[in-house]
Amino acid sequence: MPTPNAAALDFLLTRRSCPAKTLTTPVPDRLELEPILTAAARTPDHGKLEPWRFLVLERPALERIAALIPAHGARLGIAPDKIEKAIAQYGDAHLVVAVVAAPVPSEKIPAIEQTLSAGAVCLSLLNAALASGWGANWLTGWASHDPQFAAEAFGIAADESIAGLIHIGTARATPPDRPRPDLGAKVTWVSA
Rank of each mutant, 00 (worst) to 15 (best):
M1E: 02
P2S: 07
T3R: 10
N5Q: 13
A8G: 04
L9T: 09
L9P: 08
D10Q: 13
T14R: 14
T14H: 15
T14P: 10
C18L: 12
C18D: 10
A20K: 10
A20S: 15
A20P: 11
L23K: 07
P28N: 08
L33A: 06
I36G: 07
T38V: 12
A40H: 00
R42T: 02
R42C: 10
T43Q: 06
T43A: 14
P44A: 06
P44G: 07
D45H: 03
D45M: 07
H46N: 11
G47A: 00
K48C: 11
L49T: 01
E50N: 12
P51I: 08
R53V: 05
R53A: 09
R53K: 13
L55K: 12
L55V: 09
V56C: 12
R59S: 03
R59N: 02
P60H: 01
A61G: 09
L62D: 02
L62C: 03
E63V: 10
E63Y: 00
R64F: 02
I65Y: 01
I69Y: 03
H72G: 01
A74T: 03
R75G: 00
G77N: 04
K82N: 11
A86L: 05
A86F: 05
I87G: 00
I87K: 14
A88K: 15
Q89R: 14
G91L: 02
G91F: 00
D92C: 14
A93F: 06
A93T: 03
A93L: 05
H94C: 08
H94G: 04
A101P: 07
V104H: 02
V104R: 11
S106V: 03
P110R: 08
A111Q: 12
I112F: 13
Q114R: 08
Q114D: 08
Q114W: 06
T115R: 10
T115G: 13
A118Q: 05
G119F: 09
G119A: 13
A120I: 07
A120M: 14
A120R: 04
V121W: 07
S124C: 14
L126Y: 00
A128L: 10
A128P: 09
L130G: 08
A131V: 06
G133I: 12
G135I: 15
N137E: 13
N137H: 14
L139V: 15
L139H: 07
G141R: 04
G141Q: 02
W142G: 12
A143W: 04
S144H: 09
S144D: 09
H145R: 15
D146E: 04
D146N: 12
P147I: 10
P147Y: 01
P147D: 09
Q148W: 00
A151E: 12
E152M: 05
A153S: 01
F154D: 06
F154C: 06
G155F: 05
A157R: 12
A157E: 13
A158D: 15
S161D: 10
I162P: 07
G164A: 11
I168M: 08
I168N: 02
A171I: 14
R172D: 03
A173C: 09
P176M: 01
D177N: 13
D177K: 13
D177P: 14
L183W: 01
L183N: 00
G184E: 11
T188A: 11
W189A: 11
W189K: 11
V190M: 02
S191T: 15
